[in-house]
């Protein structure tokens, strides 16, 4: 099994596991916590959905405490759902996912910049070596 196929079942598996763990009644508030990740899931075409994965991980980090509390409470009481849908909780979860997205995109920009600089440096060195070789081994007719 390839890495792409493995990644292809990781995200749905995590989502499915989360839903089963929180029970159907907790699914809706839980999904609302991960709305950016779900949105990304629907938009992302890349195999393995790496950005969705990042958003889910960061969303878990941002919403760990409410989710843990919801888990410990058993999730049977409507108050538990309300706690999950608390604006602060929601904001933390979404903000965390937003930070995850920013981190991924920022790192992408940084690495592209670094790779381009590296390529430019190597190209420049090659160009200057070609110029030096041309100057040394140019056709004799070009001599003064």
């Amino acid at each position: 099994m390839g890495g792409g196929a493995l990644r292809g079942i990781v995200v749905p598996g995590m989502l499915l596991g989360g839903v089963i763990a929180l029970a159907v009644c907790g699914a809706l508030p839980t999904l609302s916590l991960f709305l950016p990740a779900l949105l990304m899931l629907s938009l992302e075409q890349e195999p393995g959905r790496p950005m969705t994965r990042t958003l889910l991980l960061f969303g878990l980090v941002g919403a760990w405490d409410p989710l843990a509390a919801f888990w410990r409470a058993g999730g049977g009481h409507p108050m538990d759902w309300m706690q999950l849908l608390d604006l602060i909780t929601l904001a933390h979860a979404w903000l965390a996912q937003c930070l995850g997205w920013l981190l991924a995109e920022g790192l992408t920009l940084l690495l592209v910049y670094v790779a381009d600089r590296q390529a430019a440096r190597v190209g420049g060195m090659a160009q200057s070596e070609i110029h030096a070789l041309d100057a040394e081994w140019k056709a004799p007719a070009d001599d003064g």
Binding site: P50, L103, L107, T108, L109
Partner: peptide, 9 residues
Amino acid sequence: ARRSAQEVA
């Protein structure tokens, strides 16, 4: 670069 960045993230 993008793949690497996503892995790092």
